[in-house]
Design a protein around this nucleic acid. Structure first.
Lengths: 260, 260
DNA sequence: TTTGCTAAGATTGGATCCAATCAACATTGG
DNA sequence: CCAATGTTGATTGGATCCAATCTTAGCAAA
Protein backbone atom coordinates (compact mmCIF):
# COMPACT_ATOMS: atom_id res chain seq x y z
CA UNK A 1 0.00 0.00 0.00
CA UNK A 2 1.69 3.10 -1.18
CA UNK A 3 -0.11 5.47 1.07
CA UNK A 4 1.58 8.75 1.76
CA UNK A 5 0.17 10.08 5.01
CA UNK A 6 1.45 13.55 4.34
CA UNK A 7 -0.53 14.04 1.16
CA UNK A 8 -3.43 11.64 1.73
CA UNK A 9 -5.49 10.12 4.45
CA UNK A 10 -4.39 6.73 5.73
CA UNK A 11 -6.29 3.87 4.21
CA UNK A 12 -7.68 2.53 7.45
CA UNK A 13 -10.52 4.15 9.33
CA UNK A 14 -9.93 7.77 8.33
CA UNK A 15 -11.58 9.03 11.52
CA UNK A 16 -14.30 10.54 9.38
CA UNK A 17 -12.74 13.98 9.05
CA UNK A 18 -13.61 13.78 5.42
CA UNK A 19 -15.96 16.62 4.59
CA UNK A 20 -18.55 17.03 7.31
CA UNK A 21 -21.65 18.88 6.07
CA UNK A 22 -20.19 20.16 2.86
CA UNK A 23 -21.15 19.05 -0.58
CA UNK A 24 -18.22 19.23 -2.98
CA UNK A 25 -19.86 20.08 -6.27
CA UNK A 26 -23.59 20.35 -6.44
CA UNK A 27 -25.14 16.94 -6.01
CA UNK A 28 -23.65 13.70 -4.76
CA UNK A 29 -24.98 10.47 -6.05
CA UNK A 30 -23.00 7.96 -3.99
CA UNK A 31 -23.45 10.06 -0.93
CA UNK A 32 -22.40 10.11 2.65
CA UNK A 33 -23.70 6.70 3.61
CA UNK A 34 -20.32 5.72 2.26
CA UNK A 35 -18.45 7.87 4.70
CA UNK A 36 -19.93 5.94 7.60
CA UNK A 37 -18.97 2.67 5.97
CA UNK A 38 -15.43 3.80 5.35
CA UNK A 39 -15.08 4.85 8.97
CA UNK A 40 -16.67 1.66 10.29
CA UNK A 41 -14.33 -0.75 8.53
CA UNK A 42 -12.01 -1.73 11.35
CA UNK A 43 -9.14 -3.94 10.26
CA UNK A 44 -7.69 -2.81 6.97
CA UNK A 45 -6.42 -5.34 4.44
CA UNK A 46 -3.01 -5.10 2.85
CA UNK A 47 -3.92 -3.16 -0.24
CA UNK A 48 -6.24 -0.25 -0.86
CA UNK A 49 -8.06 -2.26 -3.51
CA UNK A 50 -8.92 -4.98 -1.02
CA UNK A 51 -10.07 -2.39 1.45
CA UNK A 52 -12.36 -0.76 -1.08
CA UNK A 53 -13.69 -4.09 -2.25
CA UNK A 54 -14.46 -5.30 1.28
CA UNK A 55 -16.11 -2.02 2.23
CA UNK A 56 -18.28 -1.80 -0.86
CA UNK A 57 -19.21 -5.46 -0.61
CA UNK A 58 -20.31 -5.05 2.96
CA UNK A 59 -22.21 -1.93 2.00
CA UNK A 60 -24.09 -3.69 -0.77
CA UNK A 61 -24.89 -6.81 1.20
CA UNK A 62 -25.95 -4.78 4.21
CA UNK A 63 -28.24 -2.65 2.12
CA UNK A 64 -26.43 0.60 2.90
CA UNK A 65 -25.83 0.87 -0.83
CA UNK A 66 -29.28 0.13 -2.22
CA UNK A 67 -30.01 -1.66 -5.47
CA UNK A 68 -29.89 0.62 -8.47
CA UNK A 69 -27.49 3.09 -6.88
CA UNK A 70 -24.90 4.45 -9.30
CA UNK A 71 -21.32 4.12 -8.12
CA UNK A 72 -19.33 7.01 -9.59
CA UNK A 73 -15.61 6.31 -9.55
CA UNK A 74 -14.68 9.91 -8.90
CA UNK A 75 -17.04 10.26 -5.96
CA UNK A 76 -15.94 6.98 -4.44
CA UNK A 77 -12.32 7.97 -4.84
CA UNK A 78 -12.93 11.20 -2.99
CA UNK A 79 -14.84 9.51 -0.18
CA UNK A 80 -12.19 6.85 0.29
CA UNK A 81 -9.39 9.38 0.05
CA UNK A 82 -7.79 7.45 -2.81
CA UNK A 83 -7.37 7.78 -6.53
CA UNK A 84 -9.75 6.20 -8.99
CA UNK A 85 -7.46 3.27 -9.66
CA UNK A 86 -8.05 1.08 -6.61
CA UNK A 87 -11.74 1.91 -6.98
CA UNK A 88 -11.76 0.61 -10.52
CA UNK A 89 -10.04 -2.63 -9.61
CA UNK A 90 -12.40 -3.20 -6.71
CA UNK A 91 -15.39 -2.57 -8.96
CA UNK A 92 -14.04 -5.12 -11.40
CA UNK A 93 -14.00 -7.78 -8.73
CA UNK A 94 -17.45 -6.87 -7.52
CA UNK A 95 -18.68 -7.17 -11.06
CA UNK A 96 -17.33 -10.70 -11.31
CA UNK A 97 -19.28 -11.45 -8.13
CA UNK A 98 -22.46 -10.13 -9.77
CA UNK A 99 -22.88 -7.52 -7.04
CA UNK A 100 -22.73 -4.63 -9.48
CA UNK A 101 -23.56 -4.21 -13.15
CA UNK A 102 -20.78 -2.70 -15.18
CA UNK A 103 -21.46 -1.12 -18.54
CA UNK A 104 -18.70 -0.05 -20.88
CA UNK A 105 -18.62 3.73 -20.72
CA UNK A 106 -21.57 4.19 -18.44
CA UNK A 107 -20.31 3.08 -15.08
CA UNK A 108 -21.28 0.74 -12.26
CA UNK A 109 -24.69 0.26 -10.69
CA UNK A 110 -25.59 -1.87 -7.69
CA UNK A 111 -27.37 -4.93 -9.06
CA UNK A 112 -31.13 -4.84 -8.82
CA UNK A 113 -32.92 -7.54 -6.87
CA UNK A 114 -36.06 -9.10 -8.29
CA UNK A 115 -38.33 -11.95 -7.35
CA UNK A 116 -37.06 -13.93 -10.31
CA UNK A 117 -33.50 -13.59 -9.11
CA UNK A 118 -34.57 -14.55 -5.61
CA UNK A 119 -36.26 -17.72 -6.83
CA UNK A 120 -33.16 -18.46 -8.85
CA UNK A 121 -31.11 -18.04 -5.73
CA UNK A 122 -33.38 -20.32 -3.71
CA UNK A 123 -32.97 -23.05 -6.33
CA UNK A 124 -29.20 -22.71 -6.14
CA UNK A 125 -29.21 -22.68 -2.36
CA UNK A 126 -31.41 -25.75 -2.22
CA UNK A 127 -29.11 -27.69 -4.47
CA UNK A 128 -25.84 -26.64 -2.85
CA UNK A 129 -26.83 -26.57 0.79
CA UNK A 130 -28.51 -29.96 0.83
CA UNK A 131 -25.34 -31.43 -0.66
CA UNK A 132 -23.11 -29.66 1.85
CA UNK A 133 -25.33 -30.57 4.78
CA UNK A 134 -25.43 -34.24 3.82
CA UNK A 135 -21.66 -34.36 3.56
CA UNK A 136 -21.19 -32.50 6.81
CA UNK A 137 -23.61 -34.26 9.16
CA UNK A 138 -21.54 -37.42 9.71
CA UNK A 139 -18.57 -35.29 10.77
CA UNK A 140 -20.29 -32.77 13.02
CA UNK A 141 -18.93 -32.78 16.57
CA UNK A 142 -20.97 -32.02 19.69
CA UNK A 143 -19.00 -28.83 19.80
CA UNK A 144 -20.26 -27.82 16.37
CA UNK A 145 -23.84 -28.55 17.36
CA UNK A 146 -23.36 -26.53 20.52
CA UNK A 147 -22.19 -23.54 18.53
CA UNK A 148 -25.19 -23.85 16.24
CA UNK A 149 -27.52 -23.78 19.24
CA UNK A 150 -25.75 -20.70 20.54
CA UNK A 151 -26.27 -18.91 17.25
CA UNK A 152 -29.97 -19.77 17.36
CA UNK A 153 -30.15 -18.10 20.76
CA UNK A 154 -28.30 -15.08 19.46
CA UNK A 155 -30.78 -14.72 16.63
CA UNK A 156 -33.59 -14.64 19.17
CA UNK A 157 -32.00 -11.80 21.12
CA UNK A 158 -30.41 -9.80 18.35
CA UNK A 159 -32.18 -6.50 17.80
CA UNK A 160 -30.29 -5.14 14.82
CA UNK A 161 -31.88 -6.39 11.62
CA UNK A 162 -28.59 -5.89 9.83
CA UNK A 163 -26.87 -8.47 11.97
CA UNK A 164 -29.65 -11.01 11.58
CA UNK A 165 -28.53 -11.87 8.08
CA UNK A 166 -25.00 -12.36 9.28
CA UNK A 167 -26.13 -14.61 12.12
CA UNK A 168 -28.35 -16.61 9.78
CA UNK A 169 -25.38 -17.15 7.52
CA UNK A 170 -23.25 -18.14 10.46
CA UNK A 171 -25.80 -20.68 11.66
CA UNK A 172 -26.05 -22.41 8.31
CA UNK A 173 -22.32 -22.40 7.72
CA UNK A 174 -21.70 -23.96 11.13
CA UNK A 175 -23.81 -26.94 10.16
CA UNK A 176 -22.13 -27.29 6.76
CA UNK A 177 -18.60 -26.63 7.88
CA UNK A 178 -17.53 -30.31 8.17
CA UNK A 179 -18.43 -31.18 4.61
CA UNK A 180 -14.73 -31.29 3.80
CA UNK A 181 -15.22 -29.58 0.45
CA UNK A 182 -13.65 -26.12 0.57
CA UNK A 183 -14.80 -24.95 -2.84
CA UNK A 184 -18.33 -26.13 -2.24
CA UNK A 185 -18.40 -24.27 1.07
CA UNK A 186 -17.05 -21.13 -0.53
CA UNK A 187 -19.83 -21.26 -3.09
CA UNK A 188 -22.46 -21.88 -0.45
CA UNK A 189 -21.26 -18.96 1.61
CA UNK A 190 -21.29 -16.66 -1.40
CA UNK A 191 -24.88 -17.59 -2.17
CA UNK A 192 -25.90 -17.12 1.45
CA UNK A 193 -24.29 -13.70 1.39
CA UNK A 194 -26.26 -12.78 -1.72
CA UNK A 195 -29.36 -13.96 0.06
CA UNK A 196 -28.72 -11.40 2.79
CA UNK A 197 -30.08 -8.64 0.60
CA UNK A 198 -33.39 -10.39 0.06
CA UNK A 199 -33.66 -11.42 3.68
CA UNK A 200 -33.20 -7.84 4.85
CA UNK A 201 -35.70 -6.63 2.29
CA UNK A 202 -38.19 -9.11 3.66
CA UNK A 203 -37.40 -8.64 7.35
CA UNK A 204 -37.75 -4.90 7.10
CA UNK A 205 -41.39 -5.32 6.14
CA UNK A 206 -42.43 -8.45 7.98
CA UNK A 207 -41.29 -9.48 11.42
CA UNK A 208 -38.34 -11.58 12.53
CA UNK A 209 -40.63 -14.62 12.61
CA UNK A 210 -39.54 -14.93 8.99
CA UNK A 211 -36.34 -16.44 10.33
CA UNK A 212 -38.16 -19.73 10.98
CA UNK A 213 -36.26 -20.61 14.09
CA UNK A 214 -38.26 -23.82 14.46
CA UNK A 215 -36.66 -25.08 11.28
CA UNK A 216 -33.26 -24.15 12.60
CA UNK A 217 -33.84 -26.12 15.78
CA UNK A 218 -35.15 -29.08 13.81
CA UNK A 219 -32.04 -29.04 11.65
CA UNK A 220 -29.77 -29.23 14.66
CA UNK A 221 -31.93 -31.97 16.17
CA UNK A 222 -31.79 -34.11 13.06
CA UNK A 223 -28.07 -33.52 12.66
CA UNK A 224 -27.47 -34.57 16.27
CA UNK A 225 -29.13 -37.92 15.66
CA UNK A 226 -27.29 -38.31 12.34
CA UNK A 227 -30.61 -38.44 10.55
CA UNK A 228 -29.34 -37.27 7.19
CA UNK A 229 -32.56 -37.80 5.25
CA UNK A 230 -34.60 -36.06 7.92
CA UNK A 231 -32.20 -33.13 8.13
CA UNK A 232 -32.21 -32.68 4.37
CA UNK A 233 -35.99 -32.76 4.34
CA UNK A 234 -36.12 -30.03 6.97
CA UNK A 235 -33.61 -27.92 5.08
CA UNK A 236 -35.53 -28.27 1.84
CA UNK A 237 -38.73 -27.31 3.55
CA UNK A 238 -36.92 -24.42 5.23
CA UNK A 239 -35.77 -23.00 1.91
CA UNK A 240 -39.05 -23.67 0.12
CA UNK A 241 -40.94 -21.94 2.90
CA UNK A 242 -38.71 -18.91 2.62
CA UNK A 243 -39.22 -18.88 -1.14
CA UNK A 244 -42.99 -19.06 -0.78
CA UNK A 245 -43.04 -16.36 1.86
CA UNK A 246 -40.96 -14.03 -0.28
CA UNK A 247 -43.16 -14.75 -3.30
CA UNK A 248 -46.26 -13.86 -1.31
CA UNK A 249 -44.55 -10.75 -0.03
CA UNK A 250 -43.76 -9.56 -3.53
CA UNK A 251 -47.27 -10.36 -4.72
CA UNK A 252 -48.82 -8.44 -1.87
CA UNK A 253 -46.55 -5.46 -2.35
CA UNK A 254 -47.07 -5.29 -6.11
CA UNK A 255 -50.79 -5.85 -5.71
CA UNK A 256 -51.28 -3.16 -3.08
CA UNK A 257 -49.35 -0.35 -4.70
CA UNK A 258 -47.54 -0.13 -7.99
CA UNK A 259 -44.18 0.86 -6.61
CA UNK A 260 -42.41 2.19 -9.69
CA UNK B 1 -11.62 1.72 -26.59
CA UNK B 2 -8.99 4.36 -26.78
CA UNK B 3 -6.74 2.57 -29.21
CA UNK B 4 -4.49 4.76 -31.28
CA UNK B 5 -3.59 2.78 -34.38
CA UNK B 6 -0.68 5.04 -35.17
CA UNK B 7 1.19 4.39 -31.96
CA UNK B 8 -0.19 0.97 -30.99
CA UNK B 9 -1.55 -2.16 -32.51
CA UNK B 10 -5.33 -2.36 -32.82
CA UNK B 11 -6.89 -4.37 -30.09
CA UNK B 12 -8.50 -6.99 -32.29
CA UNK B 13 -6.56 -9.76 -33.94
CA UNK B 14 -3.21 -8.06 -34.30
CA UNK B 15 -2.31 -10.24 -37.28
CA UNK B 16 0.53 -11.67 -35.24
CA UNK B 17 3.17 -9.23 -36.38
CA UNK B 18 4.13 -8.92 -32.78
CA UNK B 19 7.71 -10.12 -32.47
CA UNK B 20 8.17 -13.27 -34.51
CA UNK B 21 11.26 -15.22 -33.42
CA UNK B 22 12.72 -12.55 -31.23
CA UNK B 23 12.90 -12.55 -27.47
CA UNK B 24 12.65 -9.05 -26.05
CA UNK B 25 14.88 -9.20 -23.01
CA UNK B 26 16.46 -12.45 -22.00
CA UNK B 27 13.82 -14.92 -20.92
CA UNK B 28 10.06 -14.84 -21.26
CA UNK B 29 7.92 -16.49 -18.70
CA UNK B 30 4.48 -16.01 -20.18
CA UNK B 31 5.86 -16.85 -23.58
CA UNK B 32 4.66 -17.02 -27.11
CA UNK B 33 1.79 -19.40 -26.56
CA UNK B 34 0.07 -16.14 -25.76
CA UNK B 35 0.83 -14.66 -29.14
CA UNK B 36 -1.13 -17.44 -30.81
CA UNK B 37 -4.05 -16.88 -28.48
CA UNK B 38 -4.07 -13.17 -29.09
CA UNK B 39 -4.10 -13.70 -32.83
CA UNK B 40 -6.77 -16.42 -32.64
CA UNK B 41 -9.34 -14.35 -30.79
CA UNK B 42 -11.73 -13.43 -33.57
CA UNK B 43 -14.45 -11.02 -32.50
CA UNK B 44 -13.13 -8.29 -30.24
CA UNK B 45 -15.21 -7.00 -27.36
CA UNK B 46 -15.73 -3.32 -26.76
CA UNK B 47 -12.94 -2.68 -24.33
CA UNK B 48 -9.36 -3.87 -24.15
CA UNK B 49 -9.97 -5.21 -20.66
CA UNK B 50 -12.74 -7.49 -21.89
CA UNK B 51 -10.56 -8.65 -24.73
CA UNK B 52 -7.72 -9.52 -22.39
CA UNK B 53 -10.04 -11.25 -19.96
CA UNK B 54 -11.70 -13.36 -22.64
CA UNK B 55 -8.37 -14.32 -24.18
CA UNK B 56 -6.73 -15.27 -20.91
CA UNK B 57 -9.81 -17.16 -19.77
CA UNK B 58 -9.87 -19.18 -22.95
CA UNK B 59 -6.17 -19.80 -22.59
CA UNK B 60 -6.48 -21.09 -19.06
CA UNK B 61 -9.52 -23.28 -19.71
CA UNK B 62 -8.01 -24.68 -22.87
CA UNK B 63 -4.81 -25.55 -21.13
CA UNK B 64 -2.65 -23.29 -23.26
CA UNK B 65 -1.74 -21.48 -20.06
CA UNK B 66 -0.91 -24.39 -17.77
CA UNK B 67 -1.55 -24.49 -14.05
CA UNK B 68 1.17 -22.85 -12.03
CA UNK B 69 2.23 -20.51 -14.81
CA UNK B 70 3.15 -17.04 -13.60
CA UNK B 71 1.38 -14.24 -15.40
CA UNK B 72 3.66 -11.21 -15.40
CA UNK B 73 1.78 -8.02 -16.05
CA UNK B 74 4.59 -6.43 -18.00
CA UNK B 75 5.02 -9.42 -20.28
CA UNK B 76 1.32 -9.75 -20.92
CA UNK B 77 1.09 -6.05 -21.68
CA UNK B 78 3.83 -6.38 -24.28
CA UNK B 79 2.29 -9.44 -25.90
CA UNK B 80 -1.15 -7.86 -26.09
CA UNK B 81 0.30 -4.57 -27.30
CA UNK B 82 -1.34 -2.71 -24.42
CA UNK B 83 -0.36 -1.05 -21.21
CA UNK B 84 -0.43 -2.86 -17.89
CA UNK B 85 -3.72 -1.30 -16.87
CA UNK B 86 -6.24 -3.36 -18.86
CA UNK B 87 -4.15 -6.41 -17.94
CA UNK B 88 -4.51 -5.63 -14.28
CA UNK B 89 -8.24 -5.19 -14.47
CA UNK B 90 -8.64 -8.41 -16.43
CA UNK B 91 -6.55 -10.26 -13.87
CA UNK B 92 -8.79 -8.91 -11.12
CA UNK B 93 -11.82 -10.40 -12.76
CA UNK B 94 -10.11 -13.71 -13.37
CA UNK B 95 -9.17 -13.81 -9.73
CA UNK B 96 -12.79 -13.40 -8.69
CA UNK B 97 -13.53 -16.38 -10.93
CA UNK B 98 -10.88 -18.44 -9.13
CA UNK B 99 -8.98 -19.01 -12.36
CA UNK B 100 -5.83 -17.36 -11.05
CA UNK B 101 -4.31 -16.85 -7.63
CA UNK B 102 -3.43 -13.28 -6.86
CA UNK B 103 -1.00 -12.43 -4.08
CA UNK B 104 -0.45 -8.89 -2.91
CA UNK B 105 2.95 -7.90 -4.22
CA UNK B 106 3.84 -11.20 -5.80
CA UNK B 107 1.65 -11.40 -8.85
CA UNK B 108 -0.78 -13.76 -10.51
CA UNK B 109 -0.42 -17.51 -11.05
CA UNK B 110 -2.74 -19.82 -12.92
CA UNK B 111 -4.63 -21.81 -10.29
CA UNK B 112 -3.28 -25.29 -9.67
CA UNK B 113 -5.52 -28.27 -10.21
CA UNK B 114 -5.50 -31.07 -7.68
CA UNK B 115 -7.51 -34.19 -7.08
CA UNK B 116 -9.07 -32.59 -4.02
CA UNK B 117 -10.27 -29.65 -6.06
CA UNK B 118 -11.58 -32.00 -8.71
CA UNK B 119 -13.61 -33.97 -6.16
CA UNK B 120 -14.86 -30.68 -4.81
CA UNK B 121 -15.91 -29.71 -8.29
CA UNK B 122 -17.67 -33.01 -8.86
CA UNK B 123 -19.69 -32.51 -5.68
CA UNK B 124 -20.71 -29.06 -6.84
CA UNK B 125 -21.57 -30.27 -10.32
CA UNK B 126 -23.65 -33.12 -8.95
CA UNK B 127 -25.68 -30.79 -6.80
CA UNK B 128 -26.20 -28.08 -9.37
CA UNK B 129 -26.65 -30.14 -12.52
CA UNK B 130 -29.16 -32.56 -11.06
CA UNK B 131 -31.23 -29.58 -9.95
CA UNK B 132 -30.97 -27.90 -13.36
CA UNK B 133 -31.71 -31.11 -15.23
CA UNK B 134 -34.80 -31.84 -13.14
CA UNK B 135 -36.14 -28.36 -13.76
CA UNK B 136 -35.36 -28.50 -17.46
CA UNK B 137 -36.69 -31.92 -18.47
CA UNK B 138 -40.40 -31.02 -18.46
CA UNK B 139 -39.71 -28.12 -20.81
CA UNK B 140 -37.35 -29.77 -23.27
CA UNK B 141 -38.63 -29.69 -26.85
CA UNK B 142 -37.96 -32.34 -29.50
CA UNK B 143 -35.74 -29.74 -31.07
CA UNK B 144 -33.62 -29.52 -27.94
CA UNK B 145 -33.28 -33.30 -27.78
CA UNK B 146 -32.33 -33.35 -31.45
CA UNK B 147 -29.56 -30.86 -30.85
CA UNK B 148 -28.29 -32.93 -27.93
CA UNK B 149 -28.13 -36.00 -30.17
CA UNK B 150 -26.23 -34.02 -32.76
CA UNK B 151 -23.67 -32.95 -30.21
CA UNK B 152 -23.20 -36.58 -29.16
CA UNK B 153 -22.41 -37.42 -32.75
CA UNK B 154 -20.00 -34.52 -32.98
CA UNK B 155 -18.17 -35.77 -29.94
CA UNK B 156 -17.73 -39.14 -31.64
CA UNK B 157 -16.13 -37.59 -34.70
CA UNK B 158 -14.23 -34.70 -33.18
CA UNK B 159 -10.51 -35.25 -33.31
CA UNK B 160 -9.23 -32.23 -31.46
CA UNK B 161 -9.07 -32.95 -27.75
CA UNK B 162 -9.32 -29.26 -27.03
CA UNK B 163 -12.75 -29.06 -28.56
CA UNK B 164 -14.02 -32.13 -26.75
CA UNK B 165 -14.38 -30.22 -23.52
CA UNK B 166 -16.31 -27.50 -25.29
CA UNK B 167 -18.62 -30.05 -26.90
CA UNK B 168 -19.14 -31.83 -23.62
CA UNK B 169 -20.12 -28.53 -22.05
CA UNK B 170 -22.46 -27.81 -24.93
CA UNK B 171 -24.17 -31.17 -24.60
CA UNK B 172 -24.86 -30.78 -20.93
CA UNK B 173 -26.01 -27.18 -21.26
CA UNK B 174 -28.41 -28.14 -24.04
CA UNK B 175 -30.18 -30.51 -21.68
CA UNK B 176 -30.29 -27.99 -18.85
CA UNK B 177 -31.17 -24.95 -20.93
CA UNK B 178 -34.93 -25.05 -20.27
CA UNK B 179 -34.57 -24.91 -16.49
CA UNK B 180 -35.76 -21.31 -16.59
CA UNK B 181 -33.25 -20.23 -13.96
CA UNK B 182 -30.67 -17.94 -15.54
CA UNK B 183 -28.43 -17.56 -12.53
CA UNK B 184 -28.44 -21.28 -11.86
CA UNK B 185 -27.49 -21.94 -15.47
CA UNK B 186 -24.72 -19.38 -15.34
CA UNK B 187 -23.30 -21.10 -12.29
CA UNK B 188 -23.58 -24.52 -13.91
CA UNK B 189 -21.82 -23.34 -17.03
CA UNK B 190 -19.02 -21.79 -14.99
CA UNK B 191 -18.46 -25.06 -13.14
CA UNK B 192 -18.52 -27.03 -16.37
CA UNK B 193 -15.95 -24.66 -17.80
CA UNK B 194 -13.72 -25.23 -14.79
CA UNK B 195 -14.14 -28.93 -15.32
CA UNK B 196 -12.66 -28.56 -18.81
CA UNK B 197 -9.20 -28.35 -17.37
CA UNK B 198 -9.51 -31.67 -15.53
CA UNK B 199 -11.19 -33.34 -18.46
CA UNK B 200 -8.37 -32.37 -20.77
CA UNK B 201 -5.83 -33.49 -18.23
CA UNK B 202 -7.53 -36.87 -18.12
CA UNK B 203 -8.21 -37.21 -21.82
CA UNK B 204 -4.65 -36.45 -22.73
CA UNK B 205 -3.54 -39.56 -20.87
CA UNK B 206 -6.45 -41.94 -21.30
CA UNK B 207 -8.58 -42.22 -24.38
CA UNK B 208 -11.74 -40.47 -25.40
CA UNK B 209 -13.76 -43.39 -24.00
CA UNK B 210 -13.59 -41.35 -20.82
CA UNK B 211 -16.36 -39.25 -22.31
CA UNK B 212 -18.89 -41.99 -21.41
CA UNK B 213 -21.06 -41.50 -24.44
CA UNK B 214 -23.39 -44.26 -23.26
CA UNK B 215 -24.34 -42.09 -20.32
CA UNK B 216 -24.97 -39.18 -22.63
CA UNK B 217 -27.29 -41.25 -24.78
CA UNK B 218 -29.09 -42.58 -21.71
CA UNK B 219 -29.61 -39.05 -20.45
CA UNK B 220 -31.26 -37.99 -23.71
CA UNK B 221 -33.37 -41.14 -23.69
CA UNK B 222 -34.64 -40.57 -20.17
CA UNK B 223 -35.29 -36.92 -20.88
CA UNK B 224 -37.27 -37.80 -24.00
CA UNK B 225 -39.63 -39.99 -21.97
CA UNK B 226 -39.84 -37.33 -19.24
CA UNK B 227 -38.40 -39.83 -16.77
CA UNK B 228 -36.98 -37.28 -14.35
CA UNK B 229 -35.91 -39.71 -11.65
CA UNK B 230 -34.23 -41.98 -14.17
CA UNK B 231 -32.46 -39.11 -15.87
CA UNK B 232 -31.18 -37.77 -12.57
CA UNK B 233 -29.95 -41.23 -11.63
CA UNK B 234 -28.01 -41.50 -14.88
CA UNK B 235 -26.52 -38.05 -14.42
CA UNK B 236 -25.44 -38.84 -10.88
CA UNK B 237 -23.86 -42.07 -12.03
CA UNK B 238 -22.23 -40.21 -14.91
CA UNK B 239 -20.58 -37.72 -12.60
CA UNK B 240 -19.65 -40.30 -9.98
CA UNK B 241 -18.07 -42.48 -12.63
CA UNK B 242 -16.00 -39.57 -13.88
CA UNK B 243 -14.93 -38.81 -10.32
CA UNK B 244 -13.90 -42.41 -9.70
CA UNK B 245 -12.02 -42.59 -12.98
CA UNK B 246 -10.13 -39.41 -12.25
CA UNK B 247 -9.32 -40.64 -8.74
CA UNK B 248 -7.92 -43.87 -10.12
CA UNK B 249 -5.98 -41.92 -12.71
CA UNK B 250 -4.35 -39.74 -10.07
CA UNK B 251 -3.60 -42.79 -7.88
CA UNK B 252 -1.97 -44.62 -10.76
CA UNK B 253 0.05 -41.62 -11.80
CA UNK B 254 1.26 -40.83 -8.30
CA UNK B 255 1.95 -44.48 -7.61
CA UNK B 256 3.94 -45.11 -10.76
CA UNK B 257 6.24 -42.11 -10.68
CA UNK B 258 6.51 -39.27 -8.24
CA UNK B 259 5.92 -36.49 -10.70
CA UNK B 260 7.06 -33.53 -8.68
C1' DT C 1 -44.50 22.05 -30.69
C1' DT C 2 -41.74 18.49 -31.91
C1' DT C 3 -37.84 16.32 -33.99
C1' DG C 4 -33.26 16.03 -35.39
C1' DC C 5 -28.60 17.71 -35.15
C1' DT C 6 -24.61 19.74 -32.88
C1' DA C 7 -21.64 20.85 -29.33
C1' DA C 8 -20.16 21.02 -24.61
C1' DG C 9 -19.78 18.70 -20.21
C1' DA C 10 -19.34 14.60 -17.56
C1' DT C 11 -17.54 10.10 -16.96
C1' DT C 12 -15.08 6.13 -17.97
C1' DG C 13 -11.05 3.57 -20.48
C1' DG C 14 -6.12 3.49 -21.12
C1' DA C 15 -1.16 5.11 -20.72
C1' DT C 16 2.64 6.61 -18.19
C1' DC C 17 5.03 7.69 -14.08
C1' DC C 18 6.33 7.09 -9.19
C1' DA C 19 6.30 4.59 -4.69
C1' DA C 20 6.23 0.44 -1.98
C1' DT C 21 7.14 -4.24 -1.42
C1' DC C 22 9.43 -8.60 -2.20
C1' DA C 23 13.23 -11.77 -3.48
C1' DA C 24 17.75 -12.83 -4.20
C1' DC C 25 22.40 -11.89 -3.56
C1' DA C 26 26.32 -10.02 -1.47
C1' DT C 27 28.57 -8.68 2.79
C1' DT C 28 30.05 -8.63 7.33
C1' DG C 29 30.34 -10.11 12.06
C1' DG C 30 30.28 -14.08 15.01
C1' DC D 1 32.01 -21.55 7.86
C1' DC D 2 27.44 -20.00 8.93
C1' DA D 3 23.98 -16.77 10.07
C1' DA D 4 22.11 -12.27 10.26
C1' DT D 5 21.80 -8.08 7.66
C1' DG D 6 22.11 -4.58 4.18
C1' DT D 7 21.51 -3.74 -0.69
C1' DT D 8 19.93 -3.98 -5.32
C1' DG D 9 16.96 -5.44 -9.01
C1' DA D 10 12.42 -6.97 -10.34
C1' DT D 11 7.55 -6.54 -9.90
C1' DT D 12 3.34 -4.95 -8.37
C1' DG D 13 0.25 -1.09 -6.17
C1' DG D 14 -1.28 3.63 -6.69
C1' DA D 15 -1.52 8.40 -8.73
C1' DT D 16 -1.98 11.46 -12.41
C1' DC D 17 -2.73 12.59 -17.08
C1' DC D 18 -4.81 12.07 -21.71
C1' DA D 19 -8.17 9.98 -25.03
C1' DA D 20 -12.59 8.06 -26.19
C1' DT D 21 -17.36 7.76 -25.44
C1' DC D 22 -21.69 8.76 -23.63
C1' DT D 23 -25.22 12.13 -22.12
C1' DT D 24 -27.59 16.13 -22.23
C1' DA D 25 -28.65 20.81 -23.23
C1' DG D 26 -29.38 24.00 -26.80
C1' DC D 27 -30.78 25.32 -31.27
C1' DA D 28 -32.69 25.17 -35.75
C1' DA D 29 -35.90 23.47 -39.09
C1' DA D 30 -40.18 21.16 -40.31
Amino acid sequence: MSQDPSSRQPVGPPSSDRQPPERPSGERRSDNTLAALVAAEGARPKTATEFVEATLKKGILSGALPAGMALRQEDLAREFGLSRMPIREALRQLEAQALIDFTAHKGAVVTEISLEDALDLFAIRRALETAAFALSIPNLSPDDLGRAVEVIAEIDTEADAGRLGQLNRQFHMTLYARAGRPKLLTLVEAQLASYDRYLRFHLSAEGREQMAQDDHRAMVEAAATRDVAGAIAVLERHIDTAADALTRFYAMRDGAAQVE
